[in-house]
Computed example of a mutant assay.
Amino acid sequence: MTQQVELGLHTFGDVTVDAAGLPVPQDQVLRDVVEQAVVADQTGVDFIGLGEHHRDDFAISSPEVILGTIAGRTSRIRLGTAVTVLSTDDPVRVFQRFSTLHALSGGRAEPIVGRGSFTESYGLFGHDMADYDTLFEEKLDLFAKLVKEERVTWSGQTRTGLKDQVVYPPLAQPMPVWVGVGGSPESVVRVVRQDLQLMLAIIGGDPKRFVPYVDLYNRAVEQMGRTARPVGVHSPGHVAATDAEAQEQAWPAYKEMYGRIGRERGWSPVTKASFLSEVNHGSSYVGSPETVAKKIAATVKALNLQRFDLKYTTGPIPHAVQMEGVRLYGEKVIPMVRDILSGR
């Protein structure tokens, strides 16, 4: 039996470099992201997700604005985030932005919400990290109600309540909502409790170590009497013509990005050996179309996924190189994955 799977792409709008090795201005990076999404649409990619950040190394801080531009340039690709940092936003405004995008795109909006793995937005928008858990728990609860109910009544500690409130524009058709989860059992159960879709962020180690989380999801669905929803995975990677070329292009950018984040967070220095370990045995999908397709198909089978999204930017990889990677993913990787899963 053929395993049905959707294949998407994610980007944070990583600030790239020009021919001289200098950082490209963020305004140009944003325009480049639109062009990458257009190529993704033309080559058969199912979904494009833009990650929200508030830093100098990632250009995207207002994903829905860019998604609106992409909607006007594309016809079929579904449009979402990776992730919307719901903890530091207002759920009503998030709903309004996405219901507007959903209307303008003909029902193609598909947000992925989460806490985010970076904390800059907390101070920027006046939130206290001490409220980290409460903020997300309450705001996700309200957002889930807004997506499912025409009139919403809600109360909590983190904002004023709503009573029999209609929020405009309403959804004219259902809108899928995913929750990005980094590997906490409590987060998996929360997704089921809110009857939303689970997106596992697997950015390191053997992806098979997440099998228990998928099993937990399925047990929670059964115990709570919910309907099983699609389960997806977000992982980094890079596609080029050959394995050697993909590694040569990806390693310097990987070293730059993870080296900086590691210094901020007190991690051990990034090494070429650790990079290659992730490529060969872990959750970094770097290589030729054949190599990446085989690895994606293996992960899809192991976790029984309905969606796999590749974060195709990891650090300052030049725009032209990213464009070629997006093209190869759509034209080569996606058909190969589907052939493998169908047994052809």
Rank of each mutant, 00 (worst) to 15 (best):
Phe95Ile: 12
Arg76Asn: 10
Tyr122Asn: 11
Asp89Cys: 07
Ser87Leu: 04
Arg115Gly: 10
Gly106Pro: 11
Gly107Arg: 12
Thr119Ser: 14
Arg78Trp: 02
Thr84Cys: 08
Arg93Thr: 13
Gln96Trp: 00
Pro111Leu: 04
Ala109Gln: 00
Arg108Asp: 00
Pro91Asp: 08
Pro111Tyr: 00
Leu101Gly: 06
Gly114Tyr: 01
Ser75Glu: 15
Val85Asp: 00
Phe98His: 06
Thr84Lys: 01
Val94Gly: 03
Gly114Pro: 06
Val94Gln: 05
Ser105Leu: 08
Arg115Glu: 12
His127Arg: 15
Ala109Leu: 03
Arg78His: 07
Arg115Asn: 10
Val94Tyr: 00
Asp128Pro: 11
Thr100Cys: 12
Val85Asn: 04
Val85Glu: 01
Arg78Thr: 15
Ile112His: 01
Thr81Gln: 00
Phe95Gln: 07
Thr119Phe: 14
Ile77Gly: 07
Ser105Ile: 14
Val113Glu: 01
Ile112Asn: 02
Val94His: 02
Gly116Ser: 05
Gly126Asn: 12
Ala130Asn: 12
Asp128Gln: 13
Leu104Gly: 03
Glu110Trp: 05
Asp90Gly: 07
Val92Leu: 01
Pro91Tyr: 05
Glu120Tyr: 12
Leu101Gln: 05
Thr100Tyr: 02
Ser99Thr: 06
Pro91Ser: 12
Arg108Cys: 08
Thr74Gln: 04
Gly123Met: 15
His127Thr: 09
Val94Cys: 06
Ala82Arg: 02
Gly107Trp: 01
Thr84Ser: 10
Ser117Pro: 10
Gly106Trp: 13
Ser121Phe: 10
Ala103Lys: 05
Ala130Asp: 14
Met129Phe: 13
Phe118Pro: 03
Glu110Arg: 08
Ile112Thr: 12
Thr74Arg: 02
Ile77Met: 05
Arg108Trp: 07
Val92Ala: 01
Gly106Lys: 15
Thr88Asn: 07
Thr84Arg: 03
Asp90Arg: 00
Gln96Phe: 04
Leu79Glu: 06
Phe118Leu: 11
His127Met: 14
Glu120Ile: 09
Val113Trp: 02
Glu120Arg: 04
Pro111Asp: 02
Val92Ser: 00
Tyr122Ala: 15
Ile77Leu: 11
Ser117Arg: 11
Ala130Val: 13
Val92Lys: 00
Pro111Lys: 00
Glu110Leu: 10
Thr74Val: 08
Glu110Met: 13
Phe95Lys: 07
His127Asn: 12
Ser87His: 05
Thr119Leu: 15
Phe98Leu: 03
Met129Gly: 15
Phe118Ile: 03
Thr88Ala: 07
Phe125Lys: 06
Asp131Ala: 14
Val85Ile: 13
Ala82Trp: 05
Arg93Tyr: 07
Leu86Glu: 09
Asp128Leu: 13
Phe95Asn: 08
Gly116Tyr: 04
Arg73Gln: 13
Thr81Tyr: 02
Arg76Ser: 14
Leu101Ala: 07
Leu124Thr: 14
